[in-house]
Design a protein around this nucleic acid. Structure first.
Lengths: 201, 201
DNA sequence: CGAAAATTTGACATGACTCAACTGGAGTGG
DNA sequence: CCACTCCAGTTGAGTCATGTCAAATTTTCG
């Protein structure tokens, strides 16, 4: 069921006894969201950290001019939350929204504290997860400083082909820091380039 | 001496017994760098994480076109290192360079593991430090998505007035993701605006 | 099926970059 | 103490990448 892929994901990083697996499963909540539903809102404390088992989601914020900016995208087997709000248990800056009918395996802040006590290996797991998130932000900064829009999209498509297929161009464009119209033009450009691949000059 | 501000910084986040303080001090190395010296280089494993007690430094990378991009700036009481390389103990992508005669209190990876065992409170300290770094990257992404160059600089100057004074405009511009020439024009614009502050229209 | 949302396309606007020339201090050596 | 060099910073001209807006078209999903 839904929780299988969740446990499988954890086992990629750490080992667990069957008892530990059971204990974890008992402290995980399966949550379901309709398309467009909020997983959490700006100004709220983010109570859960959410592992997506089905569907997709985005985390975004709204700037003072009212424009939305996508900070994070997630599909099956990705985590989504306003992590800063979750770890500090203070009101967050981000909205998280389900982009399709979506299911998550979610851990509440309180349960996570319990889990840390009973299954210390999870400390390591979540440290690794946050280190990955840190490295991913780091990369994103490097790329936004050094690559133009076309390179950023090409790299995104190569790194996350499933996301490129599953998510709407609009959200991908926002995530990559460009307008939806401009991404459309880039895709066209790339298709023409690829069609000419290998043809003689 | 140099180590005082280092311990003082830690004590802002956690409490330590005198014995713990001594143990920490015994596992910290004071390092000195000339202006322009490398604290660490791209391709090397970053062995130390460095707390600056005097001077200033920048972390930067060189993109495939040979352009430098500043990822992090530090003055007194800031940490500087290729943190991703340090925690993974794999070769890093960044150069760290002293911008003036600079002194650091540095902890080697091996010593940090020892310290974690003997002074468990340090686990908390470094978790807080990495969470701060994570939040700072997060903010930087939000800002690069939503603010133009002038707003980014204004915010930098308000948040870090000491850095704005101490570091050269060139490096600040690179950190903020704009050309040095453009930052020069922005500063001029801001000076004119501020001169007209409060004057009748 | 029909309304609403997403995407495409083109015309136009602009923020920011590049390049090159110039200015002005800070340090150095005679 | 002057002359010289060497960077950092300034300024302007020209250019380019990308954004904005609006209209046309396609896709999605209720």
């Amino acid at each position: 069921m839904e929780k299988d892929s969740f446990i499988a994901n954890i086992l990629q990083y750490i080992s667990l006894t069957p008892e530990e697996e059971q204990y974890i499963l008992a402290h995980v909540t399966v949550r379901k969201f309709a398309r467009g539903a909020y997983i959490n809102r700006e100004g709220e404390v983010n109570r859960y950290t959410n592992f997506i088992t089905k569907g997709s989601a985005r985390a975004y914020f709204i700037d003072p001019n009212g424009h939305e900016h996508v900070v994070q995208l997630g599909i099956r087997n990705w985590w989504i939350s306003d992590y800063t709000s979750f770890i500090t248990q203070k009101p967050g800056l981000l909205y998280c929204e389900a982009l399709e009918p979506t299911e998550t395996c979610s851990i509440s802040y309180e349960n996570l504290q319990l889990l840390y006590e009973k299954v210390p290996a999870l400390e390591r797991f979540f440290r690794l997860i946050i280190q990955k998130a840190y490295a991913s932000f780091h990369n994103r900064i490097l790329h936004s400083l050094s690559m133009d829009a076309e390179e950023r999209y090409r790299r995104f498509r190569e790194s996350y082909p499933e996301m490129d297929m599953q998510l709407s161009q609009k959200h991908i464009a926002s995530y990559l820091g460009m307008s939806a119209e401009f991404l459309s033009k880039i895709k066209k450009r790339l298709m023409i380039k690829e069609k000419n691949q290998g043809k003689p000059v």
